[in-house]
Amino acid sequence: MSAAVIEATGLTKTFPMPAGPVTALRNVSFSVSPDEYVAVSGPSGCGKSTLLHLLGSVDTATSGTLLFDGRDISTLPDAERSRIRLTQIGFVFQRFYLLPMLTAWENVELPQGEAGVSKPERRARTAELLDYVGLSQRAQHRPSQLSGGEMQRVAIARALANSPRLLLADEPTGELDQSTGEQIAELLDRVHADGNAIVVVTHDPAIAARAKRQLKMRDGEIVAGAPA
């Protein structure tokens, strides 16, 4: 097995609340290797999304360490964590989170521009990605002119824009009908088959079943599937 893309050790996350602190994650440890497809499932409120947010460095753990390519990112300043999100991690969310004022093409091109990719390279990569997700014909459409499935495919293309080492997906089929969800699941399979590490958080057993490894969570802890 090759070196882990991401390695969590003893991750704990506690949220301060008016009624008292709430611990969403308790001492979670696991790792993801570069060619893995991991599904995290469990009941609502078990800490799946919190775990995904920590892995994606959009939130910081209360305690524990998180190594990304061997580097502890839990203590990095905001600017460096932003840089990692921009170049090393791709996100796919249930609500797509596309920029409504930009076209599909611009949404996919934006992260590349921010990462300093030259214009000719950006053009080539954007065209390649939109073709990859089957939306070449919809490149100049804005999100409001796309269906849910199309928006999610644009979101996947954007997530892959800077060739990240890890793709994180939070309920990627949550707002889609079964048939469209199936297409998105197949697209994620293809992304994985092309050599990307994926961690997907899902309620859907059918989506979880596609992953090579399944982690089950309950009450902020991994109760099954984590490596020994």
Partner: peptide
């Protein structure tokens, strides 16, 4: 707010 959140999510720095 959401636009700012998306920009931050995909890796744009606060300063940017």
């Amino acid at each position: 707010r959401e636009t700012a959140g998306i920009l931050r999510l995909i890796g744009l720095r606060k300063g940017r």
